[in-house]
Design a binder for these strands. Sequence first.
DNA 1: AAAGACGCCAACCGCCTCTAG
DNA 2: CCTAGAGGCGGTTGGCGTCTT
Length: 336
Amino acid sequence: MGRAPCCDKTNVKKGPWSPEEDTKLKTYIQKHGTGSNWIALPQKIGLKRCGKSCRLRWLNYLRPNIKHGGFSEEENNVICTLYLSIGSRWSIIAAQLPGRTDNDIKNYWNTRLRKKLVGKQRKDQQSQACRVSNLKQEIKSEPEYFAGVITQTSYWPSEHNSNMHMQVTNNHYVSSQHYDLNNQTSFGNLLLNNNTATATDTFNSQVACDVSLQQEQVYPITMNMINPINSGSDTCLPSNIFPRFENLPNELSDLICVNQLLQVDGSMQGFHGIGSLDMTNNNGSTNTTSTESTSWGDINSLVYSPNLASDYEGYPQGIPQDITFEESRYFGFPMQ
DNA sequence: AAAGACGCCAACCGCCTCTAG
DNA sequence: CCTAGAGGCGGTTGGCGTCTT
């Protein structure tokens, strides 16, 4: 049995709002506020509407200082950057753009920006596929090394060390702050702090982020892992992630970039390239559940998602047939 | 000119989270 | 601690306008 409906569905009006309804709602809220009870509001003002519908109408249309349409280039950049960093958290994205509603941004993304980005993605894939292929040859020549990297390295904090102290630096500022990476708000703040600080040039800035775990381990992380758009040819991954491949930062960066760009539709995909590695904790047991008890709604995307298979239809050279299970996971290729 | 395709966007639906009792 | 209900959110739909054939 489902939950009880919030209102009598048979007795509420649906569809577009009339100017009279708008006036009633607007006048009442401006005068009395919402009274912290949307469900009761329509009855008070004699509207045959669901309370949720009133709330939506107010938030998306009637509220003062709402902007509609005409997204600027800067707003486009902010939306793209945040989407690639945190996925479809429209309310968080909207919070960074005064006057914009989550619904507006969602519609704008779905109808325009996504197409724009996918077009760019297809171009990039063609040039990068070649480099991925070359690197794969190197992996094959040193399989024991990559097997070690894939199974033994955890870049996502376990439950035991999820409270991180991060020193975040970029071209504009240095901040030092504690983040609880199992807390969505805290982690969101980390992302937003970086992105909003560079709102005017988010596509160009280099952001380095040193993460000191409680256990005195140091895991440098670049925002390239979070934001693939920053993964240009001149960006660097920290050398101690792949210590024996410190001469290959660009190639690794491209790997992550390819992996991420192919997952435009997933949330938290910015972490997928690294997060798709097994999360192995200190006692050696596989820890894919380290974040399951958190408030992250979509944290499972940190491990391989078979739903991504369809994203590979446009992979120019096809998925290598002889790729191993771990390599598949590492590259984010669908299971075969 | 007509019909079908396409794009846009307001609004709805249903799930999840939060919180008061 | 548990539960019910309201708020919040993201995915999806349907209607309308515009474009293309």
